[in-house]
Amino acid sequence: MTSPVLSVNQLCKAYSNGKEALKGVSLSVPEGSFFALLGPNGAGKSTLINIMADTVLPTSGSIDFLGHDMFSERLWCKGNMGVVPQEVAFDPFFTPREVLSMVCGLYGQKPDMKWINELLERLELAEHANKNTRQLSGGMRRRLLVAQALVHRPRLVVLDEPTAGVDVELRKRLWEYMREINASGTTILLTTHYLEEAEELCDHVAIIDRGNVIASSSMKKLLHEVAGSYLWLRYRDDWELAATDVEALSEFNPRIDDGLLCLTLNRIDLQQSTFHHAYESARLRFGPPLDAGVCQEDLEDVFLRLTREQII
């Protein structure tokens, strides 16, 4: 078991308008992990990240970062962390190269030109390095922010939706680079809406919803233990479940996905699942389906199921 880089303890945040964005969040990020922080919009992900970045003040709770208390040893913690906030912002007075040297300086380091050039190269900004940031496209600006978060070689990099609005090809290359950074020993914590990519890349995951952590474990464990399988049945292309149907099939958490009726299967023991029971229940209610099959839940299914369960 690797020790955590970051452990968040009972963190709460209530904004001045009374909105409780975090209601006692606790989670720990293992050293060297590639950690996905997932949650629907408004779950509180950015609030948590902004508290780490010191742009939002916490209401209560604590964060331990590499053995340092984040709120009493702020400067040390800031120096060893790089954050890409969700909002794209840029300084209109400077070029990307100047911005990167400046960020180095603010972190008390002599600008390492070799490293800066490598970042510009890898984040595909090299040919724009001497343009005014005003002339950069949205995607370029976001990549510049990623470079900014890496330029002082932090031990923890936190990225709040770094790939929002970035096209598929570029996203792949960006992830590839993040993977390399991670392989060289930097812990990465990120939020994203691309769950498939998170499943492929990240080795740890936490899901938060309305200010609470509803799952937090290694990706493997979540996919093995929390992910179940489900039975899908095709009847008609467009139909909706009546409330009475939902009621009758409630033990299978029924839902319509892409025109298919999906019923969650539970394991009774390692050999046997509730497949037969689920199939029979559906057949009794709707008749024999046109087609049917069993699917293993992926991260997205788990995510949707867990965050939906919270609503009920």
Partner: peptide
């Protein structure tokens, strides 16, 4: 005020300066 309006002041808040 430019920092606040353009939201770049957050980079100052994030920097390890007292």
């Amino acid at each position: 005020i430019i920092g606040k309006v353009m939201n770049v002041h957050i980079y100052l808040l994030m920097a390890p300066l007292s």
